[in-house]
Design a protein around this nucleic acid. Structure first.
Lengths: 184, 184
DNA sequence: GCAAACAAACCGACCGTACGGTATCTTTTT
DNA sequence: AAAAAGATACCGTACGGTCGGTTTGTTTGC
C-alpha cells in the first residue's frame, strides 16, 4: 500500500525489467549475448542485484521461458476466440501465432528463446509439457492426425526460418497452405 | 626405436579419427561436450596436434558438418535407388533417413550436429544450401507443395524428438502417415 | 513520535575455472 | 636438410558465481 509515492525499491518492477531486458538482449544478439553481466547492465542493475532476484543463470533463463509461455497462451487464446472453436481452430491459432504473429512470429523475442529450448533439455521438456497440456484441451477440435502433421510442419518452417534466414522458403505461402490443410 | 613396431604417421587417418571422435562426443554429451581438449583426448591426440589439422574450433565443427552432409547424401541416394525415382521418392528417402535411419535417425550422431546447425548461422546456411541443391535435382518428382509440407513436418518431428525426448510423440506413427501422404 | 533494531534490496570488487588459442620444441618422414 | 606431424607448456579472457558491505524500508520499544 501507499506505493503511489514510494519510488524506491520496487523489487517486482526490477524483476520485470530484468526479464524484459534479457529477452531483448536475446533477440538482438542471440543466446550467446545473454550473459549475466550484460543482462544486469541492460536492466540498469548490477550483477549482485540480479543474483538477488535470480539465484542462478539457469533460474533467469527459466524465468524468461515461463514468461514467454504465458504470453504465448494469451495470444493463442486471443486468436482462438475469433475462430470460434471450430474443428482445427487451435492448429490455426498455432500457425498464426508462430508464423506471423507480432509477438512470436519470426524475428521475435521468442526466436532466441526457442533456440534455448532446443539446446537445454529441461526447457525442452517444459515446452513439451505445455504443448501436451494445451493439446489436451483441444482434443475434440484438433485431434485429427493431419492436424498433427500441420503443427509439426509449423515447427519445421519456424526452425528453417530461424536457422537459415528466409532463404529459399516462402513462409507466407507455406502458411496459407497449412491453413487450407486445416480446413480440408 | 625399433622400427618394426613403430607405426608410421598417417595424418589422414588421424584427421578421420579426430572427426569421428568429435561426432561421438557430440552424441554422448551434446554440443557442450565438444571442447577442443576433450575431442583431442578422445582421439588420442594432444590439443596442439588437433590444431595442426584444424586451424580453429570453428574449422573442426565445419569439418564435422561437411562430413555428415556427405554421409547424408550417400544414404539418401541409397534409399533413392530402391524407390526407383517415382514421384515423391526423394521426400520418402528424406523421411526414412531422418526418422528411422541408423546413421541419421534419432539417437544418432547427427542429432548433436543438428543442434549445432541451429545455433550456428553459418552452418544453418550451409544446410539450407545443401537442401536447396538437393531439391533442385528432384524438382520433377518432388515439387508438389504437399511434399514440402511433409518435409517440414519431418524437420518438426525431428526437432521435437531431439529437444524433448520421445515423450508424447509417436514417431513411428508419424512416419507412416507422412509416407502415406507422399503417395497422394 | 521517534529511534533503535532488524530485514530486505542492491552494490561492486573479487575469484575460480574452463576454454580457445599460441609459441616453441621434439620427432618423424621424404 | 627441411618440411610435416605432433607434444608440452603457457596465455588471455569471458563468464558464472560469491561475499562483505551499504543503502533503503519496516517493525518494535519506549
Amino acid at each position: 500500500m501507499s506505493e503511489a509515492h514510494s519510488r524506491k525499491k520496487q523489487p517486482a518492477l526490477i524483476r520485470r525489467l530484468i526479464l524484459d531486458s534479457a529477452v531483448d538482449l536475446a533477440r538482438q544478439e542471440g543466446l550467446v549475448g545473454v550473459t549475466v553481466e550484460a543482462v544486469a547492465r541492460a536492466a540498469g542493475v548490477t550483477k549482485g542485484g540480479l543474483f538477488h532476484h535470480f539465484p542462478s543463470k539457469q533460474a533467469l533463463i527459466q524465468g524468461m521461458f515461463e514468461d514467454v509461455l504465458q504470453k504465448l497462451d494469451a495470444e493463442i487464446d486471443d486468436i482462438l476466440e475469433k475462430d470460434d472453436y471450430r474443428p482445427g481452430s487451435f492448429t490455426r491459432a498455432y500457425i498464426e501465432t508462430m508464423l506471423s504473429g507480432e509477438e512470436f512470429g519470426l524475428e521475435s523475442p521468442w526466436s532466441a528463446i526457442g533456440v534455448a529450448t532446443i539446446s537445454d533439455p529441461s526447457l525442452g521438456l517444459a515446452w513439451s509439457h505445455w504443448l501436451a497440456a494445451r493439446l489436451e484441451r483441444h482434443v475434440e477440435t484438433d485431434g485429427a492426425p493431419i492436424l498433427e502433421v500441420v503443427r509439426l510442419a509449423v515447427d519445421g518452417a519456424w526452425l528453417a526460418h530461424i536457422s537459415h534466414g528466409k532463404e529459399g522458403l516462402d513462409v507466407a505461402a507455406i502458411r496459407e497452405q497449412l491453413l487450407s490443410l486445416t480446413r480440408g
